[in-house]
């Protein structure tokens, strides 16, 4: 693809650039990559209104939750459905322990359960195994690993 040179382009108009960037695929690297192009692109793709529209345009699920066993421990993990480009992101990168043990390494004392997803965030509830009372809530953004 050759270098593009002309006096004006739709990319110079915020509204049109937003329409173009809304069409980017839902790969986890799409918007981070766009935000590294220049400050104006970053401002656009981090705008909450743009992000709401982006989610509305791409309603397909981006990943699934599942439990995995790692080092003998059960983890609640998130995997992308779409294949990330090689070398850009790790599969099964985001996870939290599904079960926690007490300090003595005895039986599991509580478990994390997924209770719902909204706006790209997941609500997890930590329930002790012995009395099933809710102890902790965790709002998790698996894409940002927060």
């Amino acid at each position: 693809m050759g270098r593009h040179s002309r006096r004006a382009s739709p990319l110079d108009v915020d509204d049109l650039l937003a329409e173009i960037l809304l069409c980017l695929p839902t790969l986890p690297t799409s918007l981070p990559c766009a935000s590294l192009v220049c400050a104006r692109w970053r401002r656009l793709v981090t705008d909450p209104i743009f992000l709401r529209r982006f989610r509305a345009c791409h309603w397909e699920p981006v990943g699934v939750f599942h439990t995995i066993f790692q080092s003998g421990r059960e983890h609640l993990s998130f995997s992308f459905i779409s294949d990330p480009p090689p070398g850009s992101i790790l599969h099964d990168r985001f996870s939290v322990p599904a079960r926690c043990q007490d300090a003595g390494g005895g039986d599991d004392v509580y478990t994390w359960n997924v209770r719902g997803c909204r706006h790209g965030r997941v609500l997890l509830i930590n329930m002790p195994c012995y009395d099933r009372k809710v102890h902790q809530f965790l709002v998790w953004n698996p894409l940002a690993c927060e």
């Binding site: 049109l16 990559c33 766009a34």
Partner: peptide, 29 residues
């Protein structure tokens, strides 16, 4: 929609440097 989709496809799989090169965008960072 169709034309914007085509332009977004021209960005697909490209690094920020390559996107700047294709669309002649100045890196102001």
């Amino acid at each position: 929609d169709v034309t914007c989709h085509k332009i977004s496809e021209m960005m697909k799989g490209k690094s920020p440097d390559q996107i700047r090169e294709v669309f002649n965008i100045k890196n102001d960072y």
